[in-house]
Computed example of a mutant assay.
Amino acid sequence: MASYSGRGVHGQVVQRLGARIVGGHWAEGDVLDVRALGDELDVSLTVMRESLKVLAGKGLIDARQKRGTYVRPRSAWNLLDADVIRWRMAGGDGERLMRDLTDVRSVVEPAAAHRAALRRSDADLTALDAALAAMERARGDLAAEADADAAFHRALLGATGNELLARFDLILEPGLRERDRLVHAHGDADDPVPSHRRVLDAVRDRDAPRAELAMLDLLKKKKKKKNAAASRPPGD
């Protein structure tokens, strides 16, 4: 499910309640006082109910007669949901999440690069070229670099011609942005363009094995930088 956060009043309520649940404010099985929460957030009962439906769709809560609305166990959460990923990062579970995302990327993205080299179209190359050019222009601008990085990986997934792989950007993008934030915050960022260009060149040449290896090298490099930044004490 795509991110719901920020979409008007409903989005704000979803954001606040979802962050509390994922952050551990309520434990598994805790019953939510819907009316009291509505009063606290200064929203109508209708808004509360609609917001709770969204959270139920993410697996965070459920409702039963005679029991009310309660927090579901973590095993029921949709951990691939973009909002749940974002809330985990903000709620103190970021290290575990980043480790898991790194593992997922190491499985998915080299294989995606391999397939992209075999299946890419001219339109895909145009999108990849544009993302790489944006990356070059963005040097020193954290937000712009993160946008360009995300655009490159999104275009690469799209170039596989596989609709399911293409939607993996919903999972990977929050992790990409958090990794970029960690690395840049500690001054450990280096030039990302050469490693991304090697992937793109291999995809352009339709050299699938080289594209896969280039992506593996890119991910290893980023993992090393991310781990170095995350291991430093705050303020270093």
Rank of each mutant, 00 (worst) to 15 (best):
G161S: 08
H196W: 06
Q12W: 10
G11N: 04
D42R: 11
T160C: 06
T126F: 07
R20C: 08
T46A: 12
G92E: 09
Q65V: 09
S75L: 07
L41W: 02
R16S: 14
F152H: 05
V31F: 09
V71R: 00
V84N: 00
A159W: 03
L182T: 00
D124K: 04
R88C: 06
V199E: 09
H196R: 12
H25V: 14
G68M: 06
Y4L: 10
Q12V: 02
D122A: 12
E109D: 13
E212G: 00
V183P: 09
P233N: 08
D124Q: 04
R137I: 10
R74T: 01
S44M: 05
A113M: 02
L128H: 03
E212T: 04
R20D: 15
V71N: 02
P110H: 09
A131D: 01
G235E: 07
V13F: 06
M135P: 07
W26T: 01
E163N: 13
A229R: 01
D103Q: 11
R88V: 05
E28A: 06
R74G: 08
E145W: 01
G92S: 02
V47F: 08
L118G: 05
M48E: 05
A144M: 07
T126M: 12
T46P: 00
G24F: 13
D201M: 07
A36E: 12
V104R: 12
P194E: 13
R210W: 02
A130F: 02
Q12H: 10
L118M: 09
R120S: 13
G91N: 02
D169N: 05
G94K: 00
L176I: 02
R35D: 11
R181I: 03
R105N: 05
